[in-house]
């Protein structure tokens, strides 16, 4: 064998080794069948989370008036003790409870004047974000294979809130009516504003 032949022979062998270790083959229908059985069902996960974790955990929600006082006294301590978040950053979520009188019913929210406290709004139209998912601290990032699944869980929980909590509340809410609620709120650790709190309702 001449020198060139040897060179090309080694090259082909090397390519074969690389290819052998790079790919594998399966029948497409078998692969699709196994993918279907292992596909993450965000709606089912959210429903189970709602029933077995979030609602039972709502008993641990902190009184909103008390939280506001704690935030005024020692912001860092209050955030450390009561807030949760899955992502890094200043946005943190709290599970809160409160009782008050409905003072206004808007297209997008219901305003409630808390007993001995400030006014807060309960979202009734735009229920988005991760507040309800993250506020309890019961969901861990490592439970999910990818962030898409995690985000889908958030939107499924928000869907549950719109259908099971907001819809009946909107239908029965009247100005002057007294309401007790449990919900999730989002606060910015760095730029804290407690004068315009919006509650994503979990139970009313």
């Amino acid at each position: 064998m001449n020198k060139n032949g040897l060179k090309y022979g080694v090259l082909v062998l090397l390519l074969a080794v690389v290819a052998y270790n790079s790919v594998y083959f399966r029948k497409l229908d078998e692969k699709k069948a196994s993918a279907a059985t292992t596909k993450f069902d965000a709606a089912a996960y959210a429903d189970a989370f709602w029933k077995t974790k979030l609602l039972p955990d709502s008993g641990k929600a902190i009184e909103l008036n008390m939280l506001i006082q704690e935030l005024k006294t020692d912001k860092d301590k209050a955030f450390e003790a009561h807030s949760h978040a899955l992502s890094i950053g200043n946005l943190r979520y709290f599970l809160v409870r409160g009782t008050g009188k409905i003072t206004a019913i808007g297209d997008h929210d219901v305003t409630v004047l808390l007993a001995n406290g400030p006014e807060v709004t309960i979202a009734t139209e735009y229920v988005f974000g991760n507040a309800a998912r993250d506020a309890s601290g019961q969901i861990r990032l490592t439970d999910f294979d990818n962030t898409m699944d995690l985000n889908n869980v958030s939107s499924e929980i928000n869907k549950i809130i719109r259908n099971r909590v907001v819809a009946p509340f909107k239908a029965s809410a009247k100005t002057g009516q007294e309401v007790s609620f449990i919900g999730a709120i989002e606060l910015n650790r760095e730029h804290l504003h407690t004068d315009a709190i919006e509650v994503i309702p979990i139970h009313i």
Partner: peptide
């Protein structure tokens, strides 16, 4: 996701090494 070839009912999967090479 690998590569799906529906015409030949074939799925070509990639190992970590294969993905890096690609």
């Amino acid at each position: 996701n690998g590569i799906e070839l529906p015409a030949s009912n074939l799925y070509i999967g990639f190992t970590v090494f294969g993905a890096i090479v690609a």
